[in-house]
Amino acid sequence: MSAGTNTQVGAARGWRLALSALERFGVVIAFVALFAYNAITQPDTFLKPENLRNLLNQNADIGVIAVGMTLVIIAGGIDLSVGAVMAFAAAVGMLTMNALFEGGGNETFSVVVGLATGIGLGAACGLLNGLLVTMGRIPAFIVTLAGLIGFRSVTLAIAEGGEIRAADGLTALQSFGRGGIDIPGVVDFYNQPVVFYWNILIFFAVVITGQLLLSRTRMGRHFIAVGSNEVAARYSGIPVNRVRTWSYVIVGACAGIAALMSMTRMNSVSSSGVGHLAELDAIAAVVIGGTAMTGGRGRVWGTMLGVLILIMISNMLTLADVEVYWQGFVKGVIIILAVLIQRGRAN
């Protein structure tokens, strides 16, 4: 009798542990499962190094934005303007680069200044958002919604609705986009080394930096405290407004880095296409990764897996010949599932 009860209690505890593991590491399990599924069903296409490389390369910019988004959400905010800021920063960066080069500037110098301008401008837009939220006391949703509309509009106006190409002869930009490091032993079908582009490496570098910032630095601790309970944070002597403003500056700078990545990859800036719906993909990745939309709780590595999961789903659906129109539906379902599974942790 008592043995029976013990077994029952043991089983119940086992279930609880399994459930809490699912809540905590569900995103890891989902990632591994999706990867395995893709690898098994599409061994010839999916697992090819150049396929993996290309998938990462095409989405690295969204990934960088998602890292910034994670931090801003943990700090209790939201930034809907990231996609528009990315386009704005890319457009101005490209124009700066072209103007310098065509004005007779050194090619490398022009590219470096152009790219740095993009990052700086992104951070500046973030600062503006942050000040409007903290000093202006306007809800972040409204401020950044206005930013989404406004910055996109300015970008379209600058480019007259079209594309800004890199100046003729400006090859350094493209060679940066194609450059990277060869991982020894990784070769393609023709036995040529597969280059892992700088953009991919930047993405992982941003992930690592973001996670360390969150879990190891004072600023990260302040983000968590402010997002968890702003009033208690203020009573604890945390400069709440400064902390919140910084979170917007960081996500803005991430949008600037994403602008850099899209410039080097495309060698041009499409005023309507760059960063289009980036805010939604980024938020989706954050949610899938297990960060609470209410702030105070989250993780950058989870967001990274969220980005990879979204990439794999698109890839899977494309390879399975699912019409592109249906892909959004599947993503929507995945987001809901992710929240349902992870909800238990809050209670």
Binding site: R218, R221, I224, A225, S228, A233, S236, G237, G296, R297
Partner: peptide
């Protein structure tokens, strides 16, 4: 207090500078 944070985080939060300028 911040109910969701750990005891350690709560204890050191107001005085975090003392544990390292940037990285506690």
């Amino acid at each position: 207090i911040l109910v969701d944070l750990s005891c350690i985080r709560n204890t050191t939060l107001p005085n975090l500078e003392a544990y390292g300028r940037l990285v506690p």
